[in-house]
Structures are given as structure tokens and as C-alpha cells.
Amino acid sequence: MTPLLSVQGITKRYGAHIGCADVSFDLYPGEVMGIVGESGSGKSTLLNCMAGHLRPDAGSVVFDTRGHGPRDTVTMSEPERRMLGRTDWAFVHQHARDGLRMGVSAGGNVGERLMAVGARHYGDIRDKAVDWLERVEIDAGRVDDRPTTFSGGMQQRLQIARNLVTGPRLVFMDEPTGGLDVSVQARLLDLLRGLVRDMGLSAIIVTHDLAVVRLLADRLMVMKDGHVVENGLTDQVLDDPQHAYTQLLVSSVLQV
């Protein structure tokens, strides 16, 4: 089986400082990979390198494209990479405001990716937008409201709908539950888990919240100071941590 995403030796430096160093892994279709680590451990740098937002200093990110098979997205041309960014890839930002157009209605936000790939029938676009709002549990009556009138949790769900509407195969998520209160987090995680399973999505989730990866991720990578210190199946890593830092991380979680 060809991996959907094959990352080899990704390295990114900020001057003398290391962002992330020599990270390699394969992600197979339908698999959810979690990346955990403390602030500044390089998880967001790694995610941005993979999603094409940052150019890595070394390494390759080979994606199994629909049309042309495995291609290195680091060396492909920018138009191709941006095309991937609005078709097969999706990126969910930590702050919904970064991923939404706050001046555009919820329907317009969801429809943007459709129009970006050539949809030119208003009725169809709107039907799809309403359908997706319902799938992320936003009342269809809010379709013409701006995201500024939405709560934080709704904004995050809207961002997810906007990203998934074109049926991507790989979703990058950067702290998708950050800044939400626990009950809203729980519902969002529930929703994400359902969507990932239903659509057969592959996902890479960056978070510092171990509960999130416990629920969503099949595999886990633990990062510290730009290096991957441990990786394996999620339950394995969390229940039987080998590396000293992972042990610290797992034992730091408050048991209520």
C-alpha cells in the first residue's frame, strides 16, 4: 500500500535555532497521526512545513496525488501546491479567525473552496453549504450570518465545514480544540471523530492536549526540542511511555 503522505528528513532551522530536525514518518490512508509536545517543541513548525506554509531547509514531503501519483510537494511548483491546498488538503487553524473570512457569511465561507475550484451555480453551492452546516451541527438558519456573531465553538465547527466541503483526503489540524471550554471541546472531538471515520480522512493533529490524541489519533509522535523522541501506537505510547520526557508528559496530566 502506498502511503498517502511520506515525510523524509524534514528539517527547519531559524538561524542557529532548530525548528524541527530530521523528522520522518509515513501516513497511510485513513490514518490519524497525533503530534504532541510542549510549547516550542517544533510541532507547529513541522505541521507548517508539511502543509506548504513554510519551506523546510531539507527533506521531502511526498503526497500521493489523485492524478499523478506520489509527488514531492516541497519541490512542486507553487500553483500546484496551492491547488492541493484547496482540493486534497485542508488546514484547520487553532484560532478560527485565522481560517475564516470574518466579513463573509457562513454560507460564503463554506462555499469559497467550491467556487475556488470552479463551482458557478449559486443554488448548488448554497445547498452544499447548508448541508455542511448541518453536518457540523450549525443551524441551517444561520447560513447568512457572519462568523462574528458565532460563538467560539461554532466558529471552529464552521472552519471545519469550510475545509471539508471539497472532500479533502488529508487534514492538517493545529490545536483544533485550543481555547474552547471542555464541554465544547468534547462535542467538537465527537464531531471530528465522526467525520474522520465517515469520510475515511487521514489527519495530522498537532496538540498539547493528550486527551485529544487519545480520542482521535491512531498513532502518536512525541516531540521535544525539535526532535521526535518517541513514536508508536497511541495507547502504547500513553500507557507505557519509554522516553523520560514522555513519562513526564503523561504523568503531568491531572487525573480528576
Partner: peptide, 15 residues
């Protein structure tokens, strides 16, 4: 990449 231009027209129709 002109999808955004249609977002403006979409907003017009929805409003």
C-alpha cells in the same frame, strides 16, 4: 485564483 471574486457575488445574492 479568482474563486474569491465569486464569494463577493455569492454574498450579494444571499443578502
Amino acid at each position: 485564483e479568482y474563486g474569491l471574486m465569486h464569494v463577493k457575488l455569492y454574498e450579494d445574492i444571499s443578502r
